[in-house]
Every structure is written in structure tokens, then in C-alpha cells.
Nucleic acid binder design. Structure first.
Lengths: 192, 192
DNA sequence: CCGAAACCTGAACTGAGTACAAGTTCTTAC
DNA sequence: GTAAGAACTTGTACTCAGTTCAGGTTTCGG
């Protein structure tokens, strides 16, 4: 990794951590992009070259975490049934977030309307995940692929939103597993 | 309904239809709130007293449609199993949208990032729907309630997003029913 | 018909996001 | 090592969404 790339990542992290500090101190609305940029020692223009919006600085994933995330999708073992593999995948994904999640949840607690933005975080790897699912599904059934994707996502989000930052992280992982299992088994069925 | 209320609804509809006309002519980004207000014969300030944001004018439901929507939730017959009732409910809900949906889809086609806003449309009755589900579920299991809600919503959205405005509307209703059924039966199960 | 409440309006403001030209820092190829 | 050029940063200036508010107009209840 050349100097340029290292500097870029460093700047990204400086801006991000500055932003999260200010936001958790004063609340999302009470912090302007100008405040963040000034405190992080860059110009407003530079801020927007790193983050496309003020929301992004609060919710975008760290490039390294994103890479780990994507790496999970490389696993191509198709001997496990789809939904079980999917459940494991989501649990593994959740495992990458023990630092990230509590912060996000506290921000959202103050500004509930940011939930929409937070959900959009997933968009960055949604295409990859969809491809992962499509690979394990009979030939090119787009509707079915999308349905599996959206439903699994819904189950995952349900677990995340039910989790309180004060609960243990293992509890979240259990809930993620439960939600995915329930959804996979069919919510029309009686509770097992 | 007094004069005041009638005028208000009329103004709402004038602003809305003006907005949709301009947006479908020029595209969402190329139309400013000022344009819409001017063309609709009201001030910018008034515009924002009717709609909280520029996005809202494109996606908010007509108050009357919203009322019909809510009316569907009044039905309290609990003899039908939860998921079947839910499937019927969503199909009935979809039936109220034959005018609305094609327009929304065309707007989103031009500005894909508006999908998030469109999904947020559901927020206006989400609490009611959640209560509807909770009523039919064993005592206050919040997680399960939310899971059912989110999953059903995901299935519904999948159907809506797969539907093309040129397809017949009945096809949408069929797809909604299919998606809900599949999700209810369990996506971990083989296709039936 | 009169007073109160609801409504509309213009003006002025904040802050997000964009465009661009000029300056600075890193890279690469020689 | 250095020079040409690519990539990055910055200030300025702009557009437009969304808010606030004071003052005027319309509707409503009695």
C-alpha cells in the first residue's frame, strides 16, 4: 500500500471518528459538516470528496471492514442447503460489527428518521449478496432470488433493531440466528 | 366536511398533481419546489405546510386512499390463520394502488435512490399494521411481531419491485400473493 | 356580524451539496 | 534525482431544500 493510499485511509478515519465524536456529543442535527471538517482539520470540500453526504459519514462502513464483509461472500461451498448457509453468513457478518453497531444505534436513538439511511448501508454489498444467492438457486429465477434476499435482510434487520447496545453481543448473534431460522422455516408455521 | 377541509384537500391534490406532472416531464432533480409551488399557484411556504419535503410530494398517499388503507386494518376476524389473513390483507392493500404505483415506478426509474423514500411511504401505517399483527399473536412477543411485520413487508416490496408498469395489474396481485405465500411457507423449504 | 382560530404569504436565514479553478503532494519513468 | 503528470486539497461562489416569523386574509362559531 503506497503512501497515498495510507494517507487516504487515515484521513477517512480521522474525519469519521471526529464526526462520530461530535455527533454523539451534540446530536446529529446540531453538528454541521463545517464543524466536522474544521475539527478534523480538512476543508468542507475535502469532506465531501470522502463522503457523499452528511449521513454517509455516520453510517458508511470502514473500507477494511467492508473488505472483510465481501470476503465472506467468496466462500463458495454449496454442499450446505441455501438457507442454512445464509443464516451462517449473516451471523458471520454480524460478528464484524461489535464496534460499529452500538454507535450507530445511539445515533439513531436521537434521530429516528435516520433508520432509513442506516438500512441503506447494506446497499453497498447488496449486489454481491444477491449474486451469492443466485448462484445457489435454480437457473436465473430473479423473483425468487430477490425474495430470498429481501426476506433474509428483513430477518437480519429485525434482530439488529431488537438488540439494545447494553445487551451482550452474543445475544445479538443468537437473535440473528433465531430470526433467520424462523423466517426460513416459514412464519406461517407454528412457533417451534 | 366544511369548506375549510374541502379547500385543503383540493389544494393538496392540486399541488400533488402539478408536482407529478412536472416531475414526469422533466425528472425529479430538474424540478424545484419553487417550480411546483409557482405552477400550482401557491407560495413556497404553503408547499411546505402541505408536504414536509420535496420527496413527500412524490410519494405521500392521498388522504382518502390512506383512510381506505387504514379501514382494511379494522377487520378483526381472527378465525383465519395469521399468515393467510396477512396475505389477503396485502393483496387488498395492493388493490388500492392501480393509479398510484405506475407513476411512482416511473419516477424511481429516473432516480433510483428514491427507492428508500418510496419504501418509507409504508411508515405512515406501519404502527397500525404492527398492532394488527400483535393482536393475532401470542401475548406480547415483540420480536416475533416485528419479524412477521418486516418479513411480510419484504415479501410485498419484492413483488412490487418486480412488477413492471406495463404488466397487467392482476399480475402484480398474483405476484404479491405468491411472494407472501412463499415467505409464509418458509424460504428454507423447497419450492412448491 | 364579530372575534378567534386557521390559513397563506413574502422575506430572510441556515446548512447541504456541487462546480471549478488554482495550488499542493505524491508517483512514475527516465 | 528529477521532471512531467496524475491525484488530492482548498477557497469561493453558487443552487436549492427546509425553517422561522411577522403580518395579512379567510373561515368558523356564536
Amino acid at each position: 500500500m503506497g503512501l497515498r493510499e495510507r494517507k487516504k485511509l487515515a484521513a477517512w478515519r480521522t474525519i469519521r471518528s471526529t464526526a462520530l465524536r461530535l455527533i454523539s456529543e451534540r446530536g446529529f442535527d446540531a453538528v454541521s459538516v463545517e464543524d466536522i471538517a474544521a475539527e478534523a482539520g480538512v476543508s468542507r470540500t475535502t469532506f465531501f470528496s470522502y463522503f457523499p453526504s452528511k449521513e454517509a459519514v455516520a453510517f458508511d462502513l470502514d473500507p477494511e471492514e467492508l473488505a472483510q464483509w465481501r470476503a465472506l461472500l467468496e466462500d463458495d461451498s454449496r454442499d450446505v442447503p441455501l438457507w442454512e448457509a445464509l443464516t451462517d453468513l449473516f451471523v458471520d457478518m454480524a460478528k464484524l460489527l461489535p464496534e460499529w453497531l452500538p454507535v450507530q444505534k445511539r445515533v439513531i436513538e436521537q434521530c429516528p428518521w435516520l433508520i432509513h439511511t442506516a438500512r441503506g448501508t447494506c446497499d453497498s454489498f447488496a449486489p454481491d449478496l444477491k449474486a451469492w444467492i443466485a448462484r445457489r438457486l435454480p437457473d436465473g429465477d430473479d423473483l425468487r432470488t430477490t425474495l430470498v434476499f429481501n426476506t433474509a435482510m428483513a430477518a437480519f434487520i429485525t434482530a439488529v433493531e431488537a438488540w439494545e447496545p447494553d445487551d451482550s453481543f452474543d445475544q445479538l448473534l443468537d437473535t440473528v440466528r433465531d430470526c433467520l431460522r424462523w423466517a426460513g422455516a416459514g412464519l406461517g408455521q407454528p412457533v417451534s
